[in-house]
Amino acid sequence: MPSETPQAEVGPTGCPHRSGPHSAKGSLEKGSPEDKEAKEPLWIRPDAPSRCTWQLGRPASESPHHHTAPAKSPKILPDILKKIGDTPMVRINKIGKKFGLKCELLAKCEFFNAGGSVKDRISLRMIEDAERDGTLKPGDTIIEPTSGNTGIGLALAAAVRGYRCIIVMPEKMSSEKVDVLRALGAEIVRTPTNARFDSPESHVGVAWRLKNEIPNSHILDQYRNASNPLAHYDTTADEILQQCDGKLDMLVASVGTGGTITGIARKLKEKCPGCRIIGVDPEGSILAEPEELNQTEQTTYEVEGIGYDFIPTVLDRTVVDKWFKSNDEEAFTFARMLIAQEGLLCGGSAGSTVAVAVKAAQELQEGQRCVVILPDSVRNYMTKFLSDRWMLQKGFLKEEDLTEKKPWWWHLRVQELGLSAPLTVLPTITCGHTIEILREKGFDQAPVVDEAGVILGMVTLGNMLSSLLAGKVQPSDQVGKVIYKQFKQIRLTDTLGRLSHILEMDHFALVV
């Protein structure tokens, strides 16, 4: 994948999101292997301009796509893939009243899908469409860049269908997702969380590099694949309309690839034109409109599966009536509230959605109805927002919020430890010299600072030695090549209790 991002070429006709291997024109390309080798690009942008032909009021008969309808489940399912879809609609009884809503608040519980998330729908649909058009064949390999849930859905379907599955996901995604993927037989590649989507090191860039190296491999490409919004247009939206008897006044959905909100909203605009569509985008993402909503100094966020630093091709923002931004604290607070007060075992993005819903639905009156999409299960986040310690460490809970008995030293300040200034190293000294210094002084790690004293990161003896043994660096290389740029900081005025929580999850903390 090139470091400079080429513009994806656009073909003359058809839909841009065809499933299957992508040609340089962004659509299915038939021909000899030699032709494909000559024409197939190194990668295709996940934010390529959409060429979708959908228009409100256009006859369904003019759609270029294969459409399906929700099917009634048999008493005995032939395999677990038949437990994807037909998820329950559940009334939220307490939270709406707590925040003064007059309307009825309903939750579409997508964590009841077989793999635990709304992404099971698009995973199965992308595979079925690729099999139907002859792209996927027995023994082929599926590769997908994902925040985890699409990966789980694909790995689940691949396990049943017999495909090899490789999932490329950023490091910030939970260990629970990784464990589930491994249990399903998927191979996992992790990428830096802070890598831009168009960087060769991003999950998108690495996935395309693997595709170019592995024979008979395919990126189904949830960011561009029409099967993504079509899955929701054909099934999720129809289920909502049936469950609500066609009567709903507002739908609120958090947005990642945009397939969920695009597919549902398009069908609702056709069948229930008075329904307002509300999009939820986390602070630090750029999906919301108008652009002024996205202006923030924050560039990272903890909530998973929603928000991006690019506009995915499948996201149709014209069908969203209003956007709201959400933050991590309210997302996790509301997710825990949904679990504790409503018994809905949902993930953090569901918290984002409901946090926005109780604001947006203030305009609705008694007798009206708001539906929220709860995308995934708490299963993926047992060591994250479900953990009091994690919430404390991230600053989303305060010590006084917890009532468990603490040891005698818990409320003492870090400054009472009488710490001395640490050994520091410059980023320009060599790895070999740094190892000598650390061994001589008896230290395992040291902060790396520039000549102005600005902290650049941390270097550890173990990481340097393993990097040297693996051949990633040489003793003569500058130590700046092996620094940890993500590390926890703590102030002298913070409590030892807070430091204790940090050290339970990290090997060190830097006192500043």
Rank of each mutant, 00 (worst) to 15 (best):
R209F: 06
P170K: 14
R164I: 01
L105F: 11
T191W: 01
S117N: 14
F197V: 04
L42H: 08
R18F: 07
I166F: 07
P2E: 14
A24G: 15
L156S: 05
A186I: 08
H203G: 01
S3M: 09
P46G: 01
E104T: 01
Q242W: 06
P41D: 01
R196I: 09
S61T: 12
H17F: 07
N225H: 04
K98S: 12
T191Q: 01
E201R: 14
H65R: 01
T262I: 05
P21M: 09
A107V: 13
H22G: 06
A8P: 01
G116S: 07
G14L: 14
P192S: 10
K82E: 10
C165L: 07
S61D: 05
I166N: 07
N149M: 01
V178K: 11
K172L: 01
N212F: 08
R196F: 09
R18T: 15
E37Y: 12
H218F: 12
L28I: 12
G185D: 10
R161W: 07
A107G: 15
I122V: 04
A38T: 13
M250T: 05
H66I: 15
R276S: 01
F99V: 01
P70H: 08
T146L: 06
E131V: 09
A253V: 10
R132I: 01
P46N: 03
G185L: 01
I95R: 06
C15H: 10
L105Q: 03
S27D: 15
D35Y: 11
L248G: 01
Q243P: 05
Y223C: 11
W54E: 07
K83F: 09
S227F: 09
S202L: 01
T235D: 08
Q7N: 15
E34W: 09
G263F: 03
I143C: 01
E37P: 15
D221F: 09
N212E: 11
A226S: 06
S175D: 07
C109D: 01
Y223H: 01
P16Y: 14
D234C: 01
K211I: 09
L268R: 10
P215H: 15
S3P: 09
G11M: 04
T191S: 01
R209E: 10
S254G: 05
R58K: 10
V10M: 11
D249V: 03
S27N: 14
H203C: 06
G148I: 01
I152W: 01
C15A: 05
L251Q: 11
S147Y: 01
D238Q: 01
N113W: 06
S174V: 01
I264N: 12
A231F: 07
I142H: 01
R125Y: 15
F99A: 13
P74G: 10
S174P: 05
S147V: 01
V255A: 06
Y223V: 01
T146A: 05
L136C: 15
C275S: 14
Q243S: 06
I214F: 07
N149T: 01
H22E: 14
L81S: 12
E9R: 07
N225I: 06
G116R: 10
S147P: 03
I240C: 01
L56G: 01
S174H: 03
P2M: 13
P170F: 05
K39V: 07
L181P: 05
T68H: 09
Q55F: 01
S227A: 13
A186S: 01
R276V: 10
T5M: 01
G134A: 09
D249G: 14
R58G: 06
S217C: 06
A155T: 11
E40R: 05
P74S: 10
K72L: 14
M173W: 01
A69W: 01
L241D: 05
G153L: 01
A48V: 10
A155L: 07
Y233C: 04
V252D: 10
S61K: 07
D133W: 15
E144M: 01
D221M: 01
P59R: 01
H203K: 04
T135C: 05
V206S: 08
I92V: 11
N212Q: 09
S3F: 11
D79S: 09
V180W: 01
A130Q: 01
M169V: 06
R209Q: 13
I142G: 08
N225W: 01
L210V: 05
C165Y: 05
S23C: 04
T13L: 07
D198N: 13
Q242F: 07
A159T: 12
R182M: 05
T150C: 03
N149F: 01
P145I: 04
I261T: 14
G259R: 14
G20S: 07
M173C: 14
A155D: 04
G31P: 10
V118L: 10
G205C: 13
G258R: 01
F99R: 07
R18V: 10
T236I: 12
G14C: 01
H203D: 05
D179S: 08
A157V: 08
I142V: 12
D238L: 01
L184V: 04
N216P: 06
D198V: 01
P170G: 04
A237C: 10
A130T: 07
